[in-house]
Every structure is written in C-alpha cells, then in structure tokens.
Amino acid sequence: MSTKNEIAQKIVALLKTLPKDRIKHYASFKDVQLERFQNKDLVAGISEKDLKLQYASLRDLVNDKYKNYYKLDDKLLVPKGNPNYYTRIMAEIRGEKKTSFLDAMKIVTFGK
C-alpha cells in the first residue's frame, strides 16, 4: 500500500509541474487528473502494476518522448503554403499579439 501511495504522490507531484492551459477549455487535464490521483479510494482500486504504468506513461508524455523520437522538420512545422500559420496561432494563444480586424478579414478572404 505504501508503494502505491508513493507512486500516487509522484504522479501528483508530476501533474503539479504541468503548466495551466493557455486557453480555458471545458475540462483541464491537469486539474481533473490531480483530483483523480489525490482521491485515495480511486487509487486504492488500481493495482500497483497499473499505477506504475500510469506513472511511466505520464512521465513519457512530460518528457516529450514521442516528440523527440518522431522528429518533424520545418517542412511540416513551417509549411511552405502558409509559413506564418503556426506562429500566428501561437502568438495569439500566448497572448503576445492579437490579430487585428483587418488581418482577420484578409485571412478569411484569402486564406492566409
């Protein structure tokens, strides 16, 4: 039981390091999962092996295992058809730059 509690605590510690969502969604992965793994009854219903797997998976996700393994290059990340597509979206999501009305109309009309 103590090992299970320890793993659950590590999962919680790992989840707490996740940043808050940049946009408010209908549910927050971090908050929902924090609540789940802090619920002693729910954790008690999970076997030790499965709890370790939960931790291992979460750790892989946090460590960008797949992003690093399946590396993409600028062909997809800076698409030649619309090179500013992702930078514009990310600037808007991060709150660095807001698309002006005129720019928005241009994007709606011409697609980029």
Binding site: Y26, F29, L61, N63, D64, K65, Y66, Y86, M90, I93
Partner: peptide
C-alpha cells in the same frame, strides 16, 4: 497548439476530444 508545443499539450487535446475528457482515462 499541441503540435507546436509539447507532447503533454497534444495529449491533453487528445484527452479532451477523443477521450471525451474522461476523468478515469488510462494514461
């Protein structure tokens, strides 16, 4: 957003959309 940031952000997006935000999802 997930594509341009990290795995956990993309995983959260998958969790919200494909897994219907299931609180008891298997990681």
């Amino acid at each position: 957003e997930g594509l341009m940031t990290d795995d956990i952000t993309l995983a959260s997006a998958l969790w919200r959309n494909v897994f219907n935000g299931n609180p008891n999802v298997d990681m």
